[in-house]
């Protein structure tokens, strides 16, 4: 008993501080480190986003507009043929600065400098010059976290805008993604534009994602194509977040 008492007297402080530390870390895990990331935003406030890399963004934007035009032309033709198809409404977006990147080497994420107080919600769609970037999976008061479409766990239903064939796009980290097709001959060629399909539950249809870089149909069990994402994610400093309910659904899971 005496030795236990002595032990307690000696280690009381250390033990309670150790438990406190562990509890703090557990609390941060549960609150998704909201406090920490808010502090990060405050510290990086003077360094956020300047006017560099404009040209690349403009090029990407031009290409996006060209592809959107092609996409709209095809859609228009289809609408004329099928007069009762509902017309997709374009949402209103807010421009938001990017203040941070992924905090580890597995998740492809991005931290934005606006949050709940600015009306951002989980599930909101994030785009940038060049096309779709991802969707919001976490919000705190002044920051929000975006899961990029280049994350290996994010899957999106996509359409080839020329041939209207469908597939599932999976991120491959970096600026590449892979499309797996349902059919043996998906009629995809290098250079084809890829847009979100109308079957996608998380994203509105018709958003530009990228262009086909190479097609591999040699394996009949697994026809796939490599896509280069058109939004230059590593250079982006501003993104547009679409807030209205029509373009976002709050179907979000954190785990892959």
């Amino acid at each position: 008993m005496y030795s236990l008492n002595r032990w307690w007297d000696r280690y009381r402080l250390q033990l309670s501080l150790a438990l406190l530390g562990l509890a703090t870390a557990w609390f941060m895990r549960h609150t998704h480190s909201a406090g920490l990331i808010e502090l990060y935003r405050l510290i990086t406030l003077p360094f956020q986003a300047d006017q560099t890399q404009q040209e690349r963004l403009i090029n990407a934007r031009t290409w996006e507009l060209e592809q959107q035009l092609a996409e709209l032309e095809i859609q228009n033709q289809k609408l004329q043929a099928l007069i009762d198809q509902p017309i997709v409404a374009q949402g209103k977006g807010t421009v938001v600065p990017v203040i941070g990147r992924s905090a580890d080497h597995w998740w492809q994420q991005m931290t934005l400098g606006r949050g709940r107080q600015d009306g951002l919600k989980i599930g909101a769609v994030v785009t940038a010059p060049g096309g779709l970037v991802g969707r919001i999976t976490q919000v705190s008061d002044h920051t929000s976290r975006v899961l990029l479409i280049s994350d290996p766990t994010s899957r999106i239903g996509v359409t080839i805008s020329r041939s209207r064939r469908m597939g599932v796009l999976r991120g491959q980290a970096g600026d590449r993604a892979i499309i797996e097709f349902y059919e043996k001959d998906p009629d995809a060629r290098p250079g084809d534009g890829i847009v979100t399909s109308s079957l996608s539950s998380l994203f509105p249809p018709g958003l530009l994602i990228g262009r086909v870089e190479s097609v591999d149909l040699t394996k009949t069990s697994n026809p796939h194509a490599i896509v280069k994402l058109s939004a230059p994610v590593s250079d982006i400093e501003w993104v547009t977040v679409y807030l209205d309910d029509q373009t976002s659904k709050s179907v979000v899971s954190d785990s892959p």
Partner: peptide, 15 residues
């Protein structure tokens, strides 16, 4: 290690 791992979980995703 566990404490700092939890913090990194918070900053990315827990699983």
């Amino acid at each position: 290690g566990i404490a700092l791992g939890f913090i990194q979980d918070g900053l990315t995703a827990p699983y």
